[in-house]
Nucleic acid binder design. Structure first.
Length: 861
RNA sequence: GCCGGAGUGGCGGAAUUGGUAGACGCGUCGGAUUCAAAAUCCGAUGGCUUUGCGGUCGUGCGGGUUCGAUUCCCGCCUCCGGUACCA
């Protein structure tokens, strides 16, 4: 075997690692632990895509690097195997979700192994395994017992297409996150988790974490804490016989004097009570339309405000003015008190509403132009009685104190975060360990009865009465003596809320986790995954972790100390156009406004390349039209998906791993370009040819001392690769190794020691290749045990450097000089330099700026 | 709208605390090797200008600070991600 043949060496080393259990992690208190975690995949039928490769190759490189550095590394993998697509596939095919899951996991696992990822497979778990979900149910019972789980009849996001409800977090633009189906509001009986009780801790503890700022910010925004005041407005006695108040929440109590009307949400409890006879019909119609409108429709209408007058009035407590009460759907029932005081002068929404319905606008903060738009900035209070002339912050403080004294209001805090809608009307999820009793109460299933396994059903659709699929398992439902089983199941997030803990003790049948193991391994030191989980999974998992902390199950406040989001890999397709009527094929160059065209794309593999000068242009394979490259998120419909299996078949896993890392910064999204894989492929081949010859070593590899240059290059490479890998700058680490190899090609003989060191640096990146080289270099053990090289600063030194010489800040030449040369020496050398002399001629040197080893600059006049 | 991030050759991307912009790779051009091609190896490669040395312009745009700005400050533009009537 003289050629580099990844298809031969890669399976060999994968088998080696598996047999030797190279990546098995066990508690070893003599070593420092390091827990690297990947966001575990949902085993879909589509298999692995290059986005997974980016994620897992990155964490694998880092884990192997830490291992080589002597850390006791835990790097596990498992399956988030409950979920909707599997159930939908089961519905279509009649195959049991368990079997579908099994099949998909086998495909995924094989693909992951083909990539040479170093996982401790002995810790493999899947969320749909009863031995696993037993403990998911157990954790639910802890929540239940702490009164953090409750049943509520509330309007929920119902997705008719999916036949289930969705959490707020799962709805985007009024459509389901999975499948993109329309979602409507519908009142239903549901399980809720009191995540709002943890809002402050979830917010405050973000400060403890080493997460990307943008990710923390997303969580902060989602929790959406705001400080303000609640104020009571009396309803005008003429409008209502009994005495009643409308309580509002506001962040701007300073603008109270500018409140010229009030708005209740259509669902507000007082609406029926206060509506006057004349307005009754209009109000009822409005409520009816608002109720049937989906969130989607409501937000579509957000530009145009709607609402109706109730006929009732309230009294502004600060100036006893009578102000009208309206209802409008721009006020949300679920936020604050479901009612607002409207200050049109200083709130854009109130302003739009007041303009539309011709309500009075009174400016109370100076600034802006109230004729044109609402003024939301700072300024001095005006038209505001006791707070006149104060700045906004002072006015807020003073009016709040006054409200408190008068018993009209108090400070209040609000959150955007709502309780977590935790039940789904699905089959393929964890059953609730709950018995619904005949008297309408409910009770926890005793712990000894866990796991409560999913019953078999003949069909995964809801039953005839529209109840969840589990209702079809009549015996199962009616098994408890004094009641029935809950037939909802838990959402997919449940299992992924705590899997990082189970990896530490996957086979424990006695308890959720052995405290000793938790203490040793937690927290997760590095969690790598995509930004798509920035709010959903990460918020839910933090919440459960904090509950477990309160239960004494875990000892860290937070589960994931550091998170890194790998960038998305984008696909390239090449676009052209088709004239709508004639189907004539057009280039982007042929487009004009009066043509009606459809966009079409050509897959990157099918493009015909034409070289023109130093450029290559993309052409349509069958037509003479130039194509425009289009970089987008990979998806089947866009025809720009890259399958990692194909890349492995052509180039090998080591090349794929390195190319994905070499494309650009780990956290940045970047376009996949199959043509560019050749660069990394050549590099891998160059290493192979440098070291290997036939079945053994190349003659070029010989014992002996490294020359000074080679020693310097090698130690510089150690330095750069170590620092870059530590900081997850994999792209520049690979560039450094390329430079090193380029140097080794220039010298006649490469000392063994030099190749060995380079191989160690390469090992996390191209593990199969490195093991093969290491073996050929005469080693019996895995290269993982060979340690990580260190560099010697002394070898990095050079005799002379090329120093840039500037005149007036412009580089005019360079001089060869010792790196630590004195200013006199440098200036003398510069003054003798032919290219610099003309720039100094006839000028007076006013100033000399010399930074040793960096720059020499003459300021002249 | 708001929040976060980014704009550097034909392309992906480098550049430590402000100090020779364009590392590394792709592509392109030239050479070696070959009967020939592929593969491989060596070299060149920001634009304009110059026979050449060189000159000049260049890090989204406009200003500023500085001996010196991709880097710092002010004001814009564009793109990507998130979020959206949260009072």
């Amino acid at each position: 075997m003289s050629e580099y043949q990844p298809s031969k060496i890669e399976p060999k080393w994968q088998a080696f690692w598996e047999e030797k259990k190279t990546f098995k992690a066990e508690i070893d208190k003599s070593k420092e632990k390091y827990y690297v975690l990947d966001m575990f995949p949902y085993p879909s039928g589509n298999g692995l895509h290059v986005g997974h490769v980016e994620n897992y190759a990155g964490s694998d490189i880092f884990a192997r690097y830490k291992m080589a550095k002597g850390f006791n590394v835990l790097h596990p993998m498992g399956w988030d195997s409950f979920g909707l697509p599997t159930e939908q596939y089961a519905l279509k095919t009649g195959i049991h979700p368990k079997e579908i899951t099994e099949t998909n996991i086998n495909v995924f696992k094989k693909q992951l192994k083909n990539l040479g990822l170093g996982y401790d497979w002995d810790r493999e778990l899947r969320t749909s395994d009863p031995d696993y979900y037993k403990w998911t149910q157990w954790i639910f019972l802890q929540l239940y017992n702490r009164n953090l789980a409750y049943i509520a009849e509330t309007p929920v996001n119902w997705c008719p297409e999916l036949g289930t409800v969705l959490a707020n977090e799962e709805v985007q633009d009024g459509k389901s996150e999975v499948g993109g189906f329309p979602v409507i509001r519908k009142p239903m009986r549901q399980w809720m988790l009191r995540i709002t009780e943890y809002a402050d801790r979830l917010l405050d503890d973000l400060d403890l974490l080493d997460w990307p700022e943008s990710l923390k910010e997303m969580q902060r925004n989602w929790i959406g804490k705001s400080l303000g005041a609640e104020v009571d407005f009396k309803i005008d006695p003429d409008s209502l016989d009994t005495q009643a108040n409308i309580r509002v929440y506001t962040t701007r109590p300073d603008t109270l004097f500018g409140a010229t009307y009030m708005v209740l949400s259509p669902e507000h409890a007082l609406v029926n009570l206060i509506t006057s006879e004349e307005q009754k019909a209009a109000v009822e119609t409005y409520i009816k339309t608002a109720a049937t409108k989906s969130d989607r429709a409501r937000s579509d209408d957000s530009k145009e405000k709607t609402g109706v007058f109730t006929g009732a009035y309230a009294i502004n407590p600060v100036n006893d003015t009578k102000i009208p009460i309206w209802i409008a759907d721009y006020v949300l029932a679920s936020y604050g008190t479901g009612a607002i005081m409207a200050v049109p002068a200083h709130d854009v929404r109130d302003y739009a509403f007041a303009k539309k319905f011709d309500l009075p606008i009174i400016q109370v903060v100076s600034g802006g132009n109230i004729e044109e738009e609402a003024y939301t900035g700072d300024g001095l209070l005006m038209n505001s009685g006791l707070i006149d002339g104060l700045a906004v912050p002072e006015a807020k403080a003073k009016i709040s104190a006054w409200l408190q004294e008068e018993g009209l209001g108090q400070k209040a805090v609000n959150y955007k975060l709502r309780d977590w809608l935790f039940s789904r009307q699905r089959y393929w999820g964890e059953p609730f360990p709950i018995i619904l009793k005949e008297d309408g109460t409910h009770a926890a299933l005793p712990e000894e009865m866990l796991p409560l396994c999913l019953p078999e059903v003949e069909d995964y659709k809801p039953n005839a009465a529209g109840e969840p699929p589990l209702s079809r398992a009549i015996d199962w439902v009616n098994a408890p003596e004094n009641g029935k089983r809950e037939t909802n199941t838990m959402p997919q997030w449940a299992g992924s809320c705590w899997y990082y803990l189970r990896f530490l003790d996957p086979d424990n049948t006695k308890m959720v986790i052995d405290p000793e193991k938790e203490k040793y391994w937690m927290p997760v030191d590095l969690y790598v995954g995509g930004t798509e989980h920035a709010v959903l999974h990460l918020l839910y998992a933090r919440f459960w972790h904090k509950v477990l902390y309160d239960c004494g199950v875990v000892t860290t406040k937070e589960p994931f100390q550091r998170i890194v989001n790998q960038g998305m890999i984008l696909g390239i397709a090449y676009e052209y156009y088709e004239e709508a009527e004639t189907k004539k094929v057009l280039s982007w160059k042929d487009l004009s406004d009066d043509l009606s065209t459809l966009k079409r794309t050509v897959h990157a593999d099918d493009v015909r390349w034409v070289v023109e000068g130093d450029m290559r242009k993309a052409f349509h394979p069958d037509h003479d039209i130039e194509l425009l490259p289009l970089t987008e998120k990979m998806s089947k419909s866009r025809g720009n998906v890259v399958n990692p299996d194909d890349v492995i078949a052509e180039f090998g896993a080591d090349t794929l791993r390195m190319y994905v890392m070499f494309m650009g910064p780990f956290e940045q999204s970047k376009p996949w370009d199959t043509k560019s894989v050749t660069g990394v492929s050549r590099f891998v081949n160059r290493i192979w040819r440098l070291v290997c010859e036939g079945a053994g070593l190349s003659d070029k590899i010989a014992d002996g001392e490294m020359d000074k240059d080679t020693l310097r290059v090698l130690h510089k490479t150690i330095k750069r690769v170590s620092e870059d890998t530590e900081n997850l700058r994999f792209n520049t680490a690979i560039a450094a190794m390329m430079e090193c190899v380029n140097h080794l090609y220039k010298i006649d003989s490469v000392p063994t020691e030099c190749v060995e060191t380079l191989t160690k640096l390469l090992a996390p990146y191209a593990p199969h290749l490195s093991e093969e080289l290491w073996e050929r270099l005469g080693h019996k053990e895995s290269i993982i045990d060979a340690g990580w090289p260190t560099y010697n600063e002394a070898f990095l030194a050079v005799d002379t450097i090329e120093l840039g010489v500037q005149v007036m800040g412009k580089v005019r030449g360079t001089i060869q000089i010792a790196p630590d040369a004195s200013e006199e020496v440098a200036v003398a050398a510069a003054k003798e330099n032919e290219t610099i002399i003309p720039h100094l001629e006839g000028k007076t040197i006013r100033r000399i700026i010399y930074k040793e080893g960096r720059i020499l600059n003459f300021v002249v006049s």
